[in-house]
Design a binder for these strands. Structure first.
Length: 837
RNA sequence: GCCGAAGUGGCGGAAUGGCAGACGCGCUCGCCUCAAAAGCGAGUGAGGGUAGCCUCAUGUGGGUUCGAGUCCCACCUUCGGCACCA
């Protein structure tokens, strides 16, 4: 071995990258002699170039997989490509390449970059969602949904992006704009396919409680998104008409204050109940509401507008006839699309009543020291706004002007009223959700075709499972045009009915790419199966994912859809787990100049150039060290230099005849000199800290602990040389501890220093509590809360001994000097606290 | 508006209620060098003192405690999520 070499990552890194690939070091097989560990990083959209933000993401996953391997787990760490979707298609339109060509080239490029970073995956399990052997089973998922009545088609106002010329799921509309391109989204009535995710709303919310290892933040976001609320549906009979208006309310107890009603402009009853005198005004208002984009509707948030239909309905509790209005502050998509307005207790209804001079009846009055009914309820003083002498009160209190409820505290009043409504047949308690069904149709080319056929005789027919895949035709003008590009391909559209064999037409919409990514983690368990999406036995061996790592931007969309599909498959008997991801980690972004790295902002630090300059190990170590991995971190060009210097220091620790891989088990503590003991104490305390930190994903402090160990080793080496048994132990440990994080340099030094086998298949170093224990400890002495001295004690000193030593220390004795010691205590290993009077 | 997270040196950040600022970056001085780079060593929160040391300091103001960056209350600021959801 030539130990005169300098540290040269450009030479050693490719060497080991090829070693891992050639030896398939990280390719997984079933092995029942070990516990399994399924490590997964969210599969990327193959955009081509990776930047340091990506490197952080994949390094965390790679460290996890390598660490768990050393800990004795049978690890599966697969990777694939979320390859369908708008970005590929838009890029393809821009530079004239077919999306499949562009996507497949990007996949090749990105694999190369993974390789250069030393990120090891089981490439035998690679999947790409745009290939027929994958999307065949995405289509199969659709058919299971269809079979279970969880996929259905309906005409509904949909979010339409005029730029991308496709509909979007509610989850893809952000502040009224398209999540992808930022264009203002408009409403368009279209017949679209939906997945009935609302059927799973309760399970999706309740099962969050079975996920203690998910970030609380993500669970809260999902709870809010699903938005479960408890209330009642109440019927208000129409006056002078057949029928009734059913409203949803979370506060049925305030019904005595319901002095008018409001329907959403799109509510189906509007046309029927509007009187001739009011018809023009109502129709104008409905037309205006329809014309507005989401953004316009939100921009006049506070200014309430509406129109009276001319109709009246009867308040079922008061018996009064109250006017029925329409207003766009009531949403047709939430609840029943109709409300009872209680202006005395609801700010929106109050504003509306003031504007249109409608009566206001207070039904709750505050009482002293009332507790809010639910967390988040305001318990404010009543507000009196200009233009009325009746105040608005939205807080808790007791009921007034409410007949039988008078004097009942709010909260209790709600359950009482629901009971009354149910007994009198006027309404019923119900649960309502903000969540709406998942719109999966897309009028775009680059996606999995929806496997449905329309027959003039038999109607809508699912494609037979044996006829999958419905292949996406390649030779297509794929530019968007308001309807799916597939509709222009006659050879695709015209087919035969799976039921009667007669002529029929295919569905031409494709599926939302989030369908593709909602089950890929199951395909990894059995990626080459061509008779089923996966073998349940294999899925049950690997599932659930033990560590799932990705960006917090997927907190709602992907993570909720994946949970939904997993539950559907569990109901189908395909997999045993109810939840796909046991432990979730959401890592922060790496920013530069305060912004997320992106090509358009020109602030990208490419992985390629960084790795070429200083090596993958330096880059990996820096993204681990940059800060707490769940928080955003600002890129600093100088930061990698510190890591490069550190790795050079590690390299130099191994100069000369340093051997690794021995075992100290046959040596007694008494065989070591005091300086050896000190070094070994540091070694074992570092083993404990690094192990704990990696388990907790505190990579930044794990790295700093190893740096401290390296510093201690350098000091020891300077004093005693590298040839002692203790130094060899330390050298062995420092390489093993660093191995998951900087795999190349550690593999090289392990080999050069004569280590047995390959470092990455060695067991993780064992913590030895006896070697870690100190013989003497230094503790602080506080007098009246201020540190006044530090004393050295035996590690096992008793409280009495410690206090006695503290009181007899020169400095403390001078301060105490004759004063009364009121209290003295010893916190073992930490400090002595003395209180004097 | 509601929900949640976070405010610590010049910077990134450490700290199961127990010696605040670990580790790294930057900076200063020194060694090495003809010189530089690299490397190595020392120092580096603020203020005071020749010095031993002392005082102040974790967004602001209170509180609990022998002891608070950490726990409690109120407020300020920043960021994230939801937002006319009845």
């Amino acid at each position: 071995m030539d130990r005169d070499q300098k540290y040269n990552p450009q030479v050693i890194e490719p060497k080991w990258q090829h070693y891992w690939q050639d030896n398939k070091t990280y390719y997984a097989k079933r092995d029942d002699s070990k516990p399994k560990f399924y490590a997964l990083v969210m599969f990327p959209y193959p955009s081509g170039d990776l930047h340091m933000g990506h490197m952080r993401n994949y390094t965390i996953g790679d460290v996890t997989a390598r660490y768990k391997t050393m800990r004795g787990y049978n690890v599966m760490n697969p990777m694939g490509w979320d390859a369908f979707g708008l970005p590929a298609e838009n890029a393809a339109i821009k530079d004239g390449l077919h999306p499949s060509v562009r996507t497949l080239q990007n996949i090749v490029d990105m694999k190369e970059q993974f390789f250069k970073m030393g990120i090891c995956y089981d490439w035998d399990r690679e999947v790409a969602s745009c290939l027929p052997d994958y999307y065949r089973w995405t289509q199969w998922m659709f058919l299971q949904m269809y079979k279970r009545d969880l996929a259905y088609r309906k005409n509904a106002p949909a979010n339409w992006c005029p730029n991308d010329q496709t509909v979007l799921a509610n989850e893809q509309v952000v502040n009224g704009r398209c999540e992808r391109c930022g264009a203002e989204v408009i409403k368009k009535d279209l017949t679209q396919w939906f997945f009935r995710i609302t059927s799973y709303a309760d399970r999706l919310i309740d099962d969050l409680d079975t996920l203690p290892d998910w970030p609380e933040r993500v669970k809260t976001m999902q709870r809010n998104w699903i938005g479960r609320s408890h209330g009642a549906k109440v019927d208000f009979p129409l006056v002078g008409h057949e029928g009734k208006i059913t409203v949803y309310t979370t506060r049925p107890d305030t019904i005595f204050g319901a002095t008018f009603m409001v329907l959403a402009p799109e509510h189906p009853l509007v046309a029927q109940i509007t009187t001739d005198e009011q018809r023009t005004a109502v129709e104008n208002y409905v037309a205006e509401a329809k014309r507005q984009t989401e953004i316009e509707r939100m921009s006049n948030e506070k200014e309430k507008t509406g129109a009276w239909t001319g109709a009246l309905a009867r308040n079922p509790m008061t018996g009064e006839d109250i006017p029925v209005w329409i207003a766009d502050y009531v949403l047709v998509t939430y609840g029943t699309g109709a409300i009872m307005a209680v202006p005395g207790g609801d700010e929106r209804d109050y504003d509306f009543a003031l504007k249109y001079d409608l009566p206001i009846v207070p039904v709750v009055e505050p009482v002293p020291n009332i507790e809010p009914v639910e967390k988040g309820d305001p318990s404010l003083a009543p507000v009196l706004k200009a233009g009325t002498n009746v105040p608005l009160y939205t807080g808790a209190g007791q009921m007034i002007n409410s007949g039988p409820l008078d004097g009942v505290p709010t909260g209790e009043s709600k359950t009482t009223m629901i009971k009354m409504l149910e007994e009198q047949g006027k309404g019923e308690g119900t649960v309502n959700y903000r969540l709406r069904d998942w719109l999966i149709s897309r009028q775009r080319y680059w996606g999995a075709p929806i496997p449905i056929v329309y027959c003039s005789e038999c109607g809508e027919q699912p494609v037979a499972e044996s006829d999958l895949p419905v292949v996406l035709p390649v030779d297509v003008d794929f530019r968007p045009g308001g309807e799916s590009p597939l509709a222009r391909v006659e050879s695709f559209v015209n087919t035969t009915c799976p039921h009667c064999g007669g002529p029929a037409k295919r569905e031409t919409d494709t599926m939302d790419t989030f369908v593709d990514s909602s089950w890929y983690f199951l395909r990894f368990c059995d990626p080459h199966n061509d008779s089923a999406p996966f073998d349940p036995a294999k899925a049950n061996y690997w599932m659930g994912v033990d560590q799932y790592t990705g960006g917090v931007e997927h907190a709602i969309l992907h993570l909720m859809y994946a949970r939904f599909l997993t539950k559907m498959l569990a109901d189908e008997g395909m997999v045993d787990v109810q939840e796909p991801f046991n432990r979730l980690f959401t890592q922060g972004m790496i920013t530069k100049d305060g912004a997320k790295m992106s090509k358009s902002k020109g602030n990208v630090v490419p992985v390629d150039s960084m790795v070429d300059a200083q090596g993958a190990d330096t880059g990996r170590l820096f993204v681990l060290f940059i800060g707490p991995p769940d928080e955003d971190a600002e890129w600093n060009d100088r930061g990698t230099e510190g890591m490069y210097r550190f790795l050079n220091r590690v390299w130099r620790l191994f100069e000369g005849d340093v051997r690794v891989g021995g075992s100290g088990q046959d040596r007694a503590i008494s065989d070591y000199s005091p300086s050896d003991r000190e070094l070994l104490r540091k070694v074992h305390n570092t083993i404990k800290k690094v192990t704990d930190d990696i388990d907790r994903f505190h990579f930044n402090t794990a790295v700093s602990a190893i740096m401290e160990l390296a510093n201690a080793m350098q000091a020891y080496r300077d004093a005693h040389g590298p040839k002692t048994y203790a130094f060899s132990e330390a050298a062995t440990s420092v390489l093993l501890l660093l191995a998951p994080m900087t795999p190349h340099i550690t593999a090289e030094l392990w080999e050069q220093a004569g280590g047995q086998g390959h470092i990455h298949t060695q067991p993780w170093p064992a913590f030895n509590a006896e070697l870690a224990a100190a013989e003497t400890i230094e503790v602080a002495v506080q007098v009246n809360g201020k540190v006044r001295d530090r004393i050295t004690l035996d590690a096992d000193a008793s409280e009495a001994e410690a206090i006695n030593a503290a009181l007899t220390s020169e400095k403390v004795a001078a301060i105490v000097d004759g004063k009364v010691v009121r209290q003295a205590l010893y916190v073992a290993g930490r400090l002595v606290s003395i209180v004097i009077g």
